[in-house]
Design a protein around this nucleic acid. Sequence first.
DNA 1: GTGCGATGTATCGGTCCGATACATCGTGGT
DNA 2: ACCACGATGTATCGGACCGATACATCGCAC
Lengths: 212, 212
Amino acid sequence: MLELAILGLLQEAPMHGYELRKELTAKLGAIRAAISYGSLYPTLRRLQAAGWITEAADTPATAEEVPALTSRRGRVVYTITAEGKERFAQLIAQTGPETYGDTGFGVHFAFFSRTDQATRLRILEGRRRTIEERREGLRDMLGRAAERLDAYTLELQRHGLEACEREVRWLEELIANERSGRAPTVPNDGTAGGRREDNSPPPPGESRKERP
Amino acid sequence: MLELAILGLLQEAPMHGYELRKELTAKLGAIRAAISYGSLYPTLRRLQAAGWITEAADTPATAEEVPALTSRRGRVVYTITAEGKERFAQLIAQTGPETYGDTGFGVHFAFFSRTDQATRLRILEGRRRTIEERREGLRDMLGRAAERLDAYTLELQRHGLEACEREVRWLEELIANERSGRAPTVPNDGTAGGRREDNSPPPPGESRKERP
DNA sequence: GTGCGATGTATCGGTCCGATACATCGTGGT
DNA sequence: ACCACGATGTATCGGACCGATACATCGCAC
């Protein structure tokens, strides 16, 4: 999963590790907390060994002018290679069980703008299937096995069931949208607030002021 | 996390691995898919080495009668020890950042019927704090950095934000309920009260008897 | 002038997962 | 009478990922 995410991000611009982590956190913030360096750096090493990215010290071209003190030491910039782009295309196009799990789906979805429509549809439907199954499992539990579980566990299941139902509805919408031809849900104009059409009552006083 | 869950389950009844996994999946079905044997068995080994559980072959006492053919071979039953119960009490009572993450919170919550009220409250509030922070991060993203992200990523964030808001509301309810004294929430029909004959006496001034 | 938070790279031990292997049991189909 | 198949059941291995930790630089506020 990390491999896919890194390759996808480096396709937008070369970056160094710290930056990569920040972008990763921004892009995947909805599904995972923050990528650990303990996985990031080894993965970068692995990608480099496979020839999918290249590593270059970030010494400015005018290095001789400020050689020692301000030398920006250590900063290592990673760039994706042609083989890396190929690898990304291969990873992003392939679907399977691991694509439908929470993390896998999230990462794939985050790169939907680089995924062709047929694959997008396949992933959305596979994810829906997965969540529907989880939902049915929870329904069964709340029905048949309810008396075996204590009230807290039951409440947890109930909350999980609700989340499943909600996600299925969300996926339905996305699938319908996808089939109708238009790419994303609602296009993002410059007004930065996402869409609102169902709920979210309190917009007013929020017009972005500059710093006081 | 697995350690806590296993200790908690074995406190209800001795079990063998397969059964443990099923119960684990039932109890934690809302938060994780299914526990892998690749983590279950090594953890069992670890718990046994620490003296928190004991292992016993499930050969029936009348084994001599049907020695070879129907010998139920292999079946290994694990039982929690006194030290194990102590360890569980210690684990269930301690709170910290890892208690507020998705998995950690779920496992702790699933054993709330064995947790004293003060700890329950502390965990619920910590979780709420964590989700609120995640929510703020997503809000910022959707506000400030919206133009830097494509429509699909934005939609993912929006969905994540909604989930955060929903969970915060859920937690508020649980906290209010907890403060008011009644143990679990009372969801749909009010008949969800399935309890087993647990003994959870240790914390004073907490344990709820079922007589109003 | 100095402490402190952000930037930045890197490793280590440990937890957990997915794939795989293998054996037994009951049931139903042919 | 046979056996295929899915459930039950135990177990290991390689790999992905995390949390803690260490260390060094930079800008800036006090």
